[in-house]
Amino acid sequence: MSGLKGLIHSIEAFGTVDGPGVRMVLFLAGCPMKCLFCHNPEIAAGDEGQFYTPQQVLDRYNKNKFFYQAGGLTFSGGEPLLQGEFVSQCVRLLKENKVHVAMDTSLCCGEQWVEGLIPGVDLWMVSIKAATAEMHQKLTGQSNAAIIMNNIISLNRSQVKMLIRYVIIPGYTDDEKELSKLAEFIKTLPFVPPLELLAYHTMGVHKWRNLDLIYCLAGVPDATEQDVERAREILRVNGISDFVLCYRNQG
């Protein structure tokens, strides 16, 4: 177990936007999805970072643990579950040390990781990139929408604490069709989780340029507070009432 290492792109020691309270946020390198609106393409690329053992992660956490008393640790990325074995071992160790663990994931991963993590993860923050299969394909380049939805359903059935995150991208994810489909999906879940709407922003665009990549959403404006409100209203009409009430830029 001690030999296994995970590739961590970066660590935010004073994370205040990814889960409750002040948290240490681990950004794990690599992501199987190729989201057009990704604001951390350098993390998703998965070719840079530093290797940590689970014990080193815990040591790093403990160094600042007094700041995390009302918070904890969040696995983010990239897609943390791409390094499922490492994350599972970390979570086990963290749990032994009574650390509050949040998982910021797209659940784009094999089922086995999800099941194994259920006892150790205190909060699942699951991003749904798009509600319809077509839009999912268009935005992420993946045809795995069904797998993801299934992961969400089986996780939800286990009565874990869960939060759905969804980015409002003007012209893509904010129309009636997408939103009503999203509402429909959430409502069918056995234990309806709260929904956090994030506003799309273009602050990560320069990173694509730095990586010599073409940013396909060029020209799409930042979602405004009004855009988010409008989406919320559509969702409300479609029967969603439990929102995490905050306005925040995606990422």
Partner: peptide
């Protein structure tokens, strides 16, 4: 923000 500042001070 308020809660997190409390955490910062406690820490």
């Amino acid at each position: 923000r308020c809660q997190n500042l409390v955490s910062l001070l406690d820490g």
